[in-house]
């Protein structure tokens, strides 16, 4: 059969906050072998399972919406794949959904984050923060660069429980690292926890569901 694309949605929490993207990639690869998912292998000199993540999650952040695409070479019901995956990891990696992808990862335009922690921000600070250019020093390959991140902030709102919800640019060309955003808003030494909560596509100058 033609390899079938399967999208896996999972939560990454707890001790996995300290595990980098590359380490997560390796963890998933060994797990897929363990639970005998018929994953499609590349056919090069060094065959390896073809698996693609939507986007790396910064170290120390949690997520409720991580996405991972695999291709399977034999028919297997999604409930069965989900059941096997649920037994393949510790509780810190919790499988939420297994489905056929409808959008390509290339179409991801924005990501939503919830920022919680030991800080206090009020409406005035938010309004002031959003009212002008936000210039930060960004380390790049060619040295430090002063950039304005204001255009990459789509929305920012204070929740009644003291947390912040923000939608930031997550497109390939102008992705904004939520860690940089938090430092700009809360200061370098602030104590915060970032949780990625959702993905969006662009549509008619607005944002819409990514699936």
């Amino acid at each position: 059969m033609v390899p079938e694309s399967v999208r896996i949605k999972f939560r990454k929490t707890g001790r996995l906050r300290y595990i980098s993207h590359l380490d997560l990639d390796r963890t998933v690869r060994t797990a897929l072998v363990r639970i005998k998912i018929p994953v499609w292998y590349t056919e090069g000199f060094n065959p390896h399972a073809k698996i693609v993540f939507a986007q790396p999650l910064p170290l120390f952040a949690e997520s409720e919406c991580e996405l991972l695409d695999i291709k399977i070479t034999e028919k297997m019901p999604f409930e069965e794949i989900k059941r096997r995956l649920e037994n393949a990891f510790t509780d810190d990696l919790h499988i939420l959904d297994v489905y056929t992808p409808e959008n390509s990862f290339r179409d991801i335009a924005f990501a939503e984050y919830r920022i919680s922690g030991n800080f206090s921000v009020n409406e005035n600070r938010v309004n002031d923060f959003l009212s002008k250019d936000i210039n930060i020093n960004k380390k790049t390959k060619s040295g430090e660069k002063n950039v304005n991140i204001r255009p990459q902030i789509y929305s920012l709102k204070l929740n009644s429980d003291g947390t912040i919800t923000t939608v930031l640019d997550a497109s390939g060309n102008s992705y904004l690292n939520p860690d940089i955003f938090c430092r700009a808003l809360l200061g370098d030494n602030a104590d915060f926890l970032i949780t990625r909560t959702n993905w969006f596509r662009s549509e008619n100058h607005g944002i819409t569901e990514f699936r």
Partner: peptide, 14 residues
């Protein structure tokens, strides 16, 4: 958050 390779110290492996 202040150390190299924090994954060395968290345990919780499969």
């Amino acid at each position: 958050k202040n150390v190299l390779k924090p994954g060395r110290y968290t345990g919780g492996e499969y």
